[in-house]
């Protein structure tokens, strides 16, 4: 995790990257685009979490992909090329199968990207991003993150403490739930009492006296500038290519795909660069380190 270079760039760059990639991935149902996105997502997942985690991911993603790709042709009977007829007389069409597969791959790519997002976008980055636009909510968010571990361990503490003063309700689910919820209720009393103390500490440190600024440990450096520029150019190129209709894929009634001309190749290449940005960044900095080391 810590070794991921993309993790260390400015959160705004992080979130823009994910937004751009996911937007195009979900928006453009074209096998090439989906394929590029899926490949890049897999590569980045591998880089982030290693081979073992990747295999775990596959065990989770593959069944979902299969389910999604099967559901579509079962419910959708458009398309002209009939493969065979189902038990209920509906047609299973070639187009629907292809459509199912492509959208399943799109979905798989999305899952992978979200997995990467969960690794990269840690909660403090959201606090930073929101801090600029919605400072009060960002503060509430930060406070919630601060309270949750305390409340969870308090619930545990209370239920442990109550083991010695009340019988074990393991066998009676209704009493058990009641008991569990009264634990929650006791915890609420405690949390509210604590909340009043916390607010004293906030007031004591000047909360509510004027406009708040927001401190962060993140900075926007030249690397972030460069990455943003690359992202912007790639995104624009990709969108332009899509707008020029040189990349399109029609499924129904019959498959008709367009992917030709320099605009299409350029747009696709731009998207590939965009998707692979974190991976490329990691490779670049790895090489830089190797060179530095070899000089010593």
């Amino acid at each position: 995790m810590q070794k991921d270079s993309f993790y260390t760039v400015n959160p705004a760059v992080n979130i823009c990257f994910f937004a751009a990639v996911m937007l195009i991935t979900t928006f453009v149902l074209h096998p090439v685009i989906v394929g590029v996105s899926l490949a890049a997502a897999c590569a980045y997942t591998l880089m982030l979490k290693g081979r073992k985690a990747f295999v775990y991911m596959l065990a989770f993603v593959v069944p979902v992909v299969l389910a999604v790709s099967v559901i579509n042709p079962l419910f959708n009977h458009e398309g002209v090329t009939v493969l065979f007829y189902l038990w209920n007389g509906n047609a299973m069409t070639y187009e629907a199968v292809i459509y199912g597969c492509v959208s399943a791959c799109m979905f798989a790519a999305l899952i992978m990207w979200f997995f990467c997002l969960n690794c990269v976008m840690t909660s403090d980055k959201y606090v930073y991003l929101f801090g600029r636009i919605i400072p009060t909510l960002s503060l509430v968010f930060s406070m919630v993150l601060r309270f949750v571990p305390g409340i969870i361990s308090r619930i545990r503490e209370v239920s442990q403490a109550r083991r010695s003063i009340s019988p074990d309700f393991g066998k009676n689910p209704i009493k058990g739930i009641r008991h569990g919820l009264s634990t929650v209720s006791v915890t609420v009393t405690w949390a509210l009492e604590k909340a009043v103390n916390v607010s004293d500490s906030m007031k004591s440190r000047g909360y509510g006296l004027g406009r708040r600024t927001s401190f962060s440990v993140f900075s926007f450096d030249k690397r972030d500038c460069a990455l943003s520029a690359i992202m912007l150019v790639c995104f624009a190129a990709c969108v332009a290519a899509l707008a020029s209709k040189t990349i399109s894929f029609r499924f129904y009634p019959s498959i008709k795909q367009t992917f030709a001309g320099w605009a299409a190749y350029g747009g696709c290449a731009a998207f590939a660069v965009l998707c692979a940005l974190p991976v490329l960044l990691n490779i670049k900095e790895n090489i830089a380190w190797r060179i530095l080391k070899s000089r010593i």
Partner: peptide, 16 residues
């Protein structure tokens, strides 16, 4: 401050 913290506490309870 108090309103903010109490709201945050309730949200935290929901999450927990």
């Amino acid at each position: 401050a108090r309103e903010l913290v109490v709201l945050a506490a309730m949200i935290a309870i929901g999450v927990a």
